[in-house]
């Protein structure tokens, strides 16, 4: 199940070309000034914006994979989450989130029956992470996963990420917190002007 994620000459109108290889169970943390294209990079990997280049999950090329299947295998959680139904549970495949997953994120069981309108920003974001993980992805793309969270929730999310890394899932995350990258044992890279510019802190 565990597969590496290999990004080759990924390019959009605004960023790239970018080459990056993440081993199975490896965590890479991207930082860089705002407007450098960090979010666009993750969107391009998920094939959400038109792009050139190729991405492999194991030996499977993205171009040979229908986009919906690809996005279930390489799941992106954007910095701002979208909701289209009134009740939280309707956003989960099968209509019911796994209670164990919710409690791992510090959310009560009945969070599934909450209405989206009453969610706080932090609850929204953790539920967005939960519904992506519920897809059973082999790689996870997280855009500022803890920017909106309090310290306790941040700890819960980091603990869950470490568990997923232990299961062999590759995690590519955008974060401004150098300590977070350290806590996750991540390889740190810097993105500048749409290109990977070597290890963070080196410039």
């Amino acid at each position: 199940m565990a597969s590496e994620l290999r990004i080759e000459k990924l390019k959009t109108a605004l960023i790239g070309p970018i080459d990056l290889r993440l081993g199975a169970g490896e965590c890479v943390a991207i930082s860089g000034p705002s407007g450098a294209g960090k979010s666009l990079f993750l969107r391009a990997v998920a094939d959400l914006d038109p792009n050139d280049g190729e991405v492999f999950l194991g030996d499977r090329p993205r171009s040979a994979c229908p986009a919906p299947d690809w996005r279930r295998a390489v799941a992106l959680v954007p910095a701002e989450s979208g909701w289209w139904a009134d009740i939280v549970a309707d956003h989960f495949s099968g209509g019911r989130p796994d209670p164990a997953l919710l409690s791992a994120l510090g959310l009560p069981d009945d969070a599934a029956s909450w209405t989206v309108a009453r969610l706080s920003t932090g609850e929204r974001h953790r539920l967005a992470i939960a519904r992506a993980i519920a897809l059973g992805p082999q790689a996870l793309l997280l855009d500022e996963p803890t920017a909106a969270l309090d310290p306790a929730a941040t700890e819960a999310v980091e603990k869950l990420i470490r568990k997923l890394l232990g299961d062999g899932i590759a995690v590519l995350l955008v974060t401004h917190a150098a300590e977070q990258a350290e806590r996750l044992g991540a390889r740190r890279l810097r993105l500048e002007n749409g290109r990977l510019a070597g290890p963070a802190g080196a410039s």
Binding site: R72, A75, V77, G82, W83, W84
Partner: peptide, 15 residues
């Protein structure tokens, strides 16, 4: 207006 909601579904593998 509903860009986020639509892209959220696409990201979860909706066609």
């Amino acid at each position: 207006r509903e860009k986020l909601a639509i892209e959220a579904q696409l990201l979860l593998g909706y066609r």
